[in-house]
Amino acid sequence: MNIVVAIKHIPSIADDLPVSGKNVDFDSVDFVLNEWDEHSIEQAVLIKEAVGGTVTVVGVDLIGELDNVLHLALAKGADKVVKITADDPAADSHMQAKWLAEAIKGMGANMVFAGVQASNDLDGQIGPMIAAYLDMPYIGGVSSVEANGDSATVNKEFAGGAGAKYSVSMPFVAGVQAAPKPPRYAPVSKVRQMAQTATIETVSPSGDASAGLAFKNMAPPVATGHAEMIEGSSKEVAAKIVELLKSKGLA
């Protein structure tokens, strides 16, 4: 089984995000692996452990710091890692998906996994785009994948615990919501050992695509730093809350 995992290195939202001009001030944020990508890596490794095969993790190196993430992926069980050196922190999902698709094209993948979404998917997620560029079917919101021969049984999650089971013939792209098991822990000693011994294959970006979005503005939502206090008696408070919920379609 040949599984390719496409990952995204994104600004961390653990902290406030400073803005410069009409986009994030990429120089003053930390980049981290998209949290859903941890699940797609885990899902890929679980399949490899179940039926054999190789896991290749590929990502776009936006700020020259992807190596750490790739070493971590190796320590978690990936067999091969590839980085596309772009050196453009503002590269949007369309660009990244195109470069990734070009890089994945020759890999003979049976399955391509991507995180179901990322917090910076302003122009959509890379998973469905890679599928479109590679002419493969896409299924997202995936909570488990089992490979059987040249097709896979894929569970997709809807809201509130409901979901559906699909049979998907290979090759396909899946957007992973959650692996069947929590992403495994990679001990630092293993990661550091990978950093010393592993080789990262480097490719240049190839192909061209764009989000086609003109940026007008980017700013934090108007926040007060303190709750807007609802005054009045308990009855009045209750009435105001119910009204508020109704106006937001929440009651």
Partner: peptide, 22 residues
Amino acid sequence: TVTGMDVAAWLSAKTGAPCAAY
């Protein structure tokens, strides 16, 4: 949503039309 997300970005990449998510 879990269903719309499967199609929106795909359509964008397929047709070349821009996509605005969230």
